[in-house]
Structures are given as structure tokens and as C-alpha cells.
Design a protein around this nucleic acid. Structure first.
Length: 643
RNA sequence: GCCCGGGUAGCUCAGACGGCAGAGCAGCUCACUCGUAAUGAGCAGGUCAAGGGUUCAAGUCCCUUCCCGGGCUCCA
């Protein structure tokens, strides 16, 4: 190769067909354009579109095309930023005269984008001095703001990418060689977005889109999005008659219908028995408390914006509790504690109320009234580490019972703004980290992301379609034991400060239910199913036998009903399947005579005829007692029978 | 809170241009008595989110309010 050749030239002579698909390259570990000139000894690795980095570049380049299209259609538009994001990209704009996008605009923008792609415009990298950059983008105040920031970091050169004489965008790159390499994209929606996410700054118009390496990959992605929509727990809640949010009650406040309430009762019941078996003591505390309590705890200082406004009564202000900890502390401090009582683990299914801004409410996943499976553990410094590691195991173990198996933890360390002693932070943080190591769970560290009063571990889980949800959280509180002046008397007969651990396992019962519903697409495991078994008589003269079988099932501790034969069997089967009933027992002539049922197990394609009633009851009871998770199917498969 | 999109029967939705509010499913009644994802007929069901305005006439056009959905720093 002649000296100073580009990556593209290198690929051209390599004779490697696959490499011709490359859109960018990693040169000496750095993502670079194919036009990058190479030095002797450079390490070059080509990047194909069908890779994480490849898709990121495709999306970022498509975002530039989007910006060019918008600028052509609405001259005078000011550009914000347009990054690639997980699953797509967006670009923020300020349109002239405060104009706003509507959904209909997406179509005309897309059309314009397709013609830019058809023109196969090159992406040309330009380097400018920081000082010149400001001149180049003189009509673009947001770009200037970015350049000004770069200047302050003493960056000397800014880069820009030019597609045509008229369109150039400030950008770090890299990009595809030309717009012709793009095309498998779709604009998805418009939204308002504050410049830099700051509501005190101007609100820009954001266009979201996604792009992939091929039409098939794009369609596959759109199919996944659709699948997620079908699993939406709010949709399932209506279909399965679980709960709703009456506007008469208020935003973010759910009422649970019989089936929904039964499910949450089963979850709570399980949680309580697990805690009782693991050395926790149940406590119960009221929903409101005087302002003095939340003054002392610091909630009114630090958490007031998430609290409901106060109620005045008999000269005092009462607040709905946003957390249970202050009340649990009062239980701890109700008398002097000995080291022999520690660790003391107080547990409550405590309902708390938090003011969430109306725009962030989201079904049961984000509500204003929620029930935490909340515990506060008071322990000696010596006990801290063991307590934390058994806690992590307890959490993981419990989550697994619900059929969730993929976890990741995140350790958040001391933020810039913090209270307490740096040494205590050190002790608490390293105890958390050692506990994580001992548990063997995968974890990452987020430096400075802790709460101001505590380092914490958050447990995230992955659901059936790969989405991550934050659930459990463990915090070592360095603040409240001091504010409430807690102690215990040690072996040395002196008073010492206990450590205090906050932890919620589901996070909230409501949110966890939402996750389960979406994870299982509504087909909850047998032990959580409101109805576990339906017995369906073929004809009216089999009804008596059906009722008998259902009664036997109820006697065996199962939730079972018998249907009437007043509709065609197929119709009743269909209804039961739509309700995601795990076991269907059809009984007809043969069964009445033989003491059997025709058993259809959810997810199985064919029924099993001639199953003895005893055997069926054993099977269902075992499934119930063992808390077997439902085998996972996609909702599309689930509903392929013509719904 | 702010931007965009919505609000029509319990649910899903249709209702050019302003001219007597519709369908499917669910519900109820009757008939059918059936072996694994929709039996048939009939009946009932609505302050078109609320309030105001324009008009001979408003679900439809305009204004206000309420509610719901999507989004609101994965940083050039």
C-alpha cells in the first residue's frame, strides 16, 4: 500500500468481499471513517452494518439525514443534538416561529429523507479551529453552545460532517461514507424535549426514529415493539379484569378488582411467609404522621417535592408517609436495645404515597400510592457484611421463585453532595461490594450515583423479552441512625451506634405485578393464577360431575370452578384460554363413567384424554405448591390460534 | 409541569363537506346440548370527557377545563 492510503482504499485492494460492506473502521482502537488516512503499522478492523457499532453509526448518520430533511423543509430551523440511542436515534429541533411538528409531518420528512438517501450524498469530514467553528455555525445557537463548552475544555479542533454544499453538522463522527448506505429506517414519533433535559431551558421538538442494517432487521425490531405493546400490563389489566385507575380517585391511584387483588394478596402472602421464615419480625405503622417526624427524619428537607401536601388538624400538620423508615425507627427506639437483639429485622408491607408529576405516571409501574415490601435492619458494625450478603441471596432467591432468572446489580457510591463521615461511607460501600462479590452476582459500579445519605445496591432483572427493570434496592443508611440518635448497648456495656439497612425486594408490590404481567404476557404461574382450574362439562347432563370434580379440587386447596354447558364447548374453551387459565378439564360421557377428565395444560398443543381425577389433582397441587414458573411463549405464538 | 397524539356503548373502533349516533365483541333473554380457541335468533346498551361559543342545525368548526397515551440529557 502506498503511504497515506485510506481505509477504503485498503479494503478495495484486499479482495475481501465482506469488507466491502464495511461502513466504518476501528483504527487503533478508535472508531473512524473509511476515509481516514492510514499510517504505517496502524491496526485496522472494519465494522459491518450488522454489528452494535455498525448500527450505532447507521442510526447516527440517519439522524443527520433527518436534520438535513427538516432544514430543507423548514429553513431557519435550529439544530439541537441528534445521537444514536438504544434501538434508534433522535434529533432535536427548534422550528422557526415556534412551529411544532405533528404526526403528519413525519411522512413528509421521511419522503425528503429518502430522496437525500437516493442522491447518495457523501459524508465529508471537516476539521475546524474552535474559533472558526463558531463562525461556521453562526445561525445555530445550540451548536455554538456546544462549541463554547468544547472551548472551555481546551479542545482546539472541532469536527463537522458535510453532506452537501448547504448542509453541515457539528459532529464527532464517524459516519457512513455516503447517504446511499442508509435506507432501512422509520420515523416513529414526535415529542417535546427540553434542551439538555432542563425544563428551564427552551423546549425543542424531538423526532424519534430507528434504523437497521436491513429491511428484515428493521421489521424484526418493529415486531418486537409490537410484542411489547401486546404485553403491556395496562392492556392486560383490562383484558383480565385486574385493576383500573378511576379518574374519580385520581391519577396514579389504582383500584384492584377481585382477580387483581387476589394476585397481589398471593404475592404479599408469599412475601410475608418468606420473611417470617427468615428472621424478620412483622410490624405495622400508620399511613400518616405529624410533620415533626418527617422534620426529624429529614424528609421534609430532602424529599418534600415528592410528598403530598400536609393536612391540618388540631393545630398540627399531618403528612401521608412517603416512606416507612421513620416509623420503623420509632419502633427500634421505643426502648433501649441490647446487642443480643441484633440484627433486628423489621418488616412491613407498608403502603406509602408519593407525589409524582402527572406526566411520569405509567400504569402500575409508576404510581402515587404503592405498597413496599419494606424492611429495615438494625445491626452492629460486625454484623453488617454478613447481613448484606445473606440479604442479597435472600433477594435473588425470592425473585427466582417468580421465574425471573437474569439479574444484574449496580453498586452506587458516594455522590459529590453527601452527609456523614467519609470513613463511614468507605466502610459501608466496601461492605456492600464484598457482599456482592460473595453472592457471585454480576454487578457494575456507578461512581457517585448513591443517595446523599447512603451507598446502595440496586438489583435489575431482565424479563422474557430482554427488557431491564430495576427492582430491589439495598441501602446502608448513614444518616437516620444519627438523626434519631439510635444506639444499642454492646457487650462492653457501652452505648454504640447501630448500622441501619433499608431494603425493598419487589420494590413495590404494584410495580412488581406489572413486571410479572409483562414478563409472562398475562399467563401467570399457576400459584399466582386467580383461577387455576376450570372444569368444563361437554353436555348439560355432565354438569353434576363437573361440579363434583371442581369441588374436589377446591377441597384440595386449589382455586377451581366448573362451567355450565350453556354454550358450545369450543366457545367456553376459548374464553378460558383467553383468561390464561393454567388447567382446563373437559368432562363428558366417557369421563363420568370412568372417573376421569380430558386435561388441557396451558401451553400444550393437545389435550390428554382419560386422566384420572386424582392424578390431575396431584399434578395441579404439585405445580401450585412448587411455584413452578410458566413456560415462556411470545404473545404472538400464544394467540396464533386465530385471535 | 411542558410538547405531540387522543377521549364516541363495558371493550376494540367506524362516523367526507356540519344535517335523525353506528359495527364487532362483551351483557341479557330464548332456542340449541355440543369432546378442546367464536351455535343461532332476539333484546337492551350513549349527557359523543365537561363547560362555553359560531350556526337554522355541532360527535364534527372555535375557545376553556378535565382525563388518558407517548416523550422530556444513553450528551457534538
Amino acid at each position: 500500500m502506498p503511504k497515506g492510503s485510506s481505509v477504503a482504499e485498503l479494503i478495495a485492494v484486499s479482495g475481501d468481499d465482506l469488507a466491502k460492506e464495511a461502513i466504518v473502521a476501528v483504527v487503533n482502537g478508535r472508531a473512524s471513517d473509511l476515509s481516514t488516512k492510514l499510517q504505517h503499522g496502524d491496526e485496522v478492523e472494519v465494522v459491518l452494518p450488522a454489528s452494535d457499532l455498525g448500527r450505532e453509526v447507521l442510526r447516527h448518520s440517519t439522524a443527520h439525514v433527518l436534520a438535513q430533511a427538516v432544514l430543507t423543509l423548514w429553513p431557519g430551523t435550529r439544530l439541537g443534538i441528534g445521537p444514536a440511542i438504544e434501538d434508534g436515534f433522535y434529533y432535536d429541533f427548534e422550528l422557526p416561529e415556534g412551529r411544532r411538528f405533528s404526526d403528519a409531518d413525519l411522512e413528509s420528512i421521511e419522503t425528503r429523507m429518502r430522496s437525500i438517501i437516493a442522491e447518495d450524498q457523501p459524508f465529508e469530514r471537516e476539521e475546524h479551529l474552535v474559533t472558526d467553528g463558531a463562525a461556521l455555525f453562526q445561525d445555530q445557537p445550540f451548536k455554538q453552545e456546544i462549541i463554547a463548552e468544547l472551548k472551555s475544555t481546551e479542545e482546539e479542533i472541532v469536527t463537522a460532517y458535510r453532506n452537501s454544499r448547504s448542509f453541515v453538522d457539528l459532529c464527532r463522527g464517524p459516519h457512513v461514507p455516503s447517504t446511499g448506505r442508509l435506507g432501512h429506517f422509520k420515523l416513529l414519533r414526535v415529542a417535546g424535549a427540553y434542551w439538555r433535559g432542563d425544563e428551564n431551558k427552551p423546549q425543542l421538538q424531538r423526532v424519534y426514529g430507528t434504523a437497521f442494517e436491513s429491511e428484515e432487521a428493521l421489521n424484526e425490531h418493529l415486531r418486537r415493539v409490537k410484542e411489547a405493546e401486546l404485553r403491556d400490563h395496562r392492556k392486560l389489566a383490562t383484558e383480565l379484569d385486574l385493576f383500573h385507575f378511576p379518574s374519580e380517585v385520581g391519577g396514579g391511584l389504582a383500584v384492584f378488582h377481585p382477580k387483581g387483588a387476589l394476585i397481589r394478596y398471593l404475592m404479599e402472602d408469599f412475601s410475608m411467609s418468606r420473611h417470617l421464615a427468615s428472621g424478620y419480625q412483622p410490624v405495622w405503622t400508620p399511613h400518616v404522621a405529624k410533620s415533626s417526624l418527617f422534620d426529624k427524619s429529614g424528609h421534609l428537607k430532602w424529599y418534600a417535592e415528592n410528598m403530598y401536601p400536609p393536612m391540618e388538624m388540631e393545630g398540627a400538620s399531618y403528612y401521608l408517609k412517603p416512606m416507612n423508615c421513620p416509623m420503623h425507627i420509632l419502633i427500634y427506639s421505643s426502648h433501649l436495645r441490647s446487642y443480643k437483639e441484633l440484627p433486628m429485622r423489621l418488616f412491613e408491607l407498608g403502603t406509602v404515597y408519593r407525589f409524582e408529576r402527572s406526566g411520569v405516571l405509567h400504569g402500575l409501574a409508576r404510581v402515587r400510592g404503592l405498597t413496599q415490601d419494606d424492611a429495615h435492619i438494625f445491626c452492629t458494625p460486625d454484623q453488617l457484611e454478613d447481613e448484606l450478603s445473606s440479604l442479597i441471596n435472600f433477594v435473588i432467591d425470592t425473585l427466582r421463585t417468580f421465574g425471573l432468572n437474569e439479574f444484574e446489580a449496580e453498586l452506587s457510591t458516594r455522590p459529590d453532595k453527601f452527609v456523614g463521615d467519609e470513613r463511614d461511607w468507605e466502610i459501608a460501600t466496601s461492605a456492600l461490594e464484598r457482599a456482592l462479590l460473595a453472592s457471585g452476582i454480576d454487578y457494575s459500579v456507578s461512581e457517585g450515583a448513591g443517595a446523599f445519605y447512603a451507598p446502595k445496591v440496586d438489583v435489575h432483572l431482565k424479563d422474557a423479552i430482554g427488557r431491564r427493570w430495576q427492582v430491589s434496592t439495598l441501602q446502608v443508611d448513614l444518616q437516620l441512625p444519627v438523626r434519631f440518635d439510635l444506639h444499642y448497648v454492646g457487650e462492653d456495656n457501652e452505648r454504640h451506634r447501630p448500622y441501619m439497612i433499608h431494603r425493598a425486594l419487589f420494590g413495590s408490590v404494584e410495580r412488581f405485578l406489572a413486571i410479572l404481567l409483562e414478563h409472562y404476557a398475562g399467563a401467570l404461574p399457576t400459584w399466582l393464577s386467580p383461577t387455576q382450574l376450570v372444569v368444563l362439562p361437554v353436555r348439560q347432563d355432565h354438569e353434576e360431575y363437573a361440579a363434583l370434580v371442581a369441588n374436589q379440587a377446591v377441597g384440595a386447596g386449589l382455586r377451581a370452578t366448573a362451567s355450565k354447558a350453556d354454550e358450545p364447548l369450543g366457545s367456553r374453551i376459548r374464553r378460558a384460554k383467553l383468561e390464561r387459565i393454567p388447567y382446563l378439564a373437559v368432562v363428558g360421557e366417557e369421563d363420568v363413567d370412568a372417573g376421569t377428565v380430558g386435561l388441557t395444560i396451558r401451553g400444550a398443543s393437545k389435550p390428554r384424554r382419560g386422566v384420572r381425577v386424582e392424578d390431575m389433582l396431584t399434578t395441579v397441587a404439585l405445580d401450585n405448591a412448587n411455584r413452578q414458573p410458566t413456560p415462556l411463549v411470545s404473545r404472538e405464538e400464544d394467540s396464533s390460534g386465530g385471535i
